[in-house]
């Protein structure tokens, strides 16, 4: 235990504190995901519009999301917003804004991909049967798009969870930050804690993300459409 630095976990409430930190990470991720999914769906439909203005906006948004490192976005929103607009937002809120901004863009692109991958003939044969526009979407297009979308969006969700490890850089006391605090506090008595604690955090992330990964590959297999 001591060689691996795991003993520190049992000191005081360290283990609980770590779990509390994990809960903060998961909260930031969960709220962002819950906001990103519906917004991303809307944005995805918007991305399929043929209107040139809509195209430019979609393109610009997606490029910004893709090109900007998440850390830079976090700094811009957290530090920049305070300076320029004089609004004081908490680090948690800044994180949620950035993650939702990112998640909506990426989710939108997934939705766009799923929608456009459905052959035009599917729309036409549904139209030819006399189904109305809402019926076509509800019965024919969305169910098929969902099959494609679920595995890829579960993947996006795990990426969002992992990336929450960055939010400690703007002062959110999430699992990484708590880990760091524990390590610092025990530096003299158990220097190996650096391995034990970070190793534990690795394991915690794994516990959260792995079931999602499994779910994605299960759905991918089950819904493989010939």
């Amino acid at each position: 235990m001591e060689a691996l630095g795991l003993d520190v976990l049992l000191n005081g409430t360290n283990a609980l504190r770590l779990l509390g930190g994990l809960w903060v990470s998961v909260q930031v991720a969960l709220i962002s995901v819950l906001l990103s999914l519906p917004l991303g769906m809307l944005f995805g439909v918007f991305m399929t519009w043929k209107n040139p203005v809509a195209k430019v906006i979609s393109r610009l948004y997606l490029e910004i999301v893709r090109i900007m490192p998440q850390l830079v976005l976090l700094f811009v929103v957290f530090f920049g917003a305070t300076r320029v607009f004089g609004i004081n937002i908490s680090a948690e809120l800044a994180s949620i804004i950035v993650f939702t901004f990112w998640g909506t863009g990426e989710m939108g692109d997934l939705v766009r991909g799923a929608l456009t991958s459905i052959p035009r003939h599917q729309y036409e044969s549904a139209e030819a049967l006399g189904l109305s526009k809402p019926q076509i979407y509800l019965q024919v297009i969305i169910p098929q798009a969902m099959r494609q979308l679920i595995p890829t969006s579960v993947n996006l969700i795990t990426r969002m969870i992992k990336t929450t490890s960055l939010v400690m850089m703007i002062g959110v006391v999430e699992v990484m930050k708590v880990g760091q605090q524990i390590i610092e506090a025990n530096r003299m008595v158990s220097p190996n804690a650096v391995f034990g604690i970070y190793g534990t955090i690795l394991f915690l992330y794994f516990i959260v993300c792995w079931p999602l990964s499994m779910l994605a590959s299960y759905l991918e297999k089950r819904w493989a459409v010939a």
């Binding site: 052959p119 036409e124 044969s125 030819a128 049967l129 006399g130 019965q139 098929q144």
Partner: peptide, 16 residues
Amino acid sequence: RQKVGMVFQSYDLFPH
């Protein structure tokens, strides 16, 4: 359109 049935070259059944 309900009064007009149409069948296409590529069948276009709903795969799901």
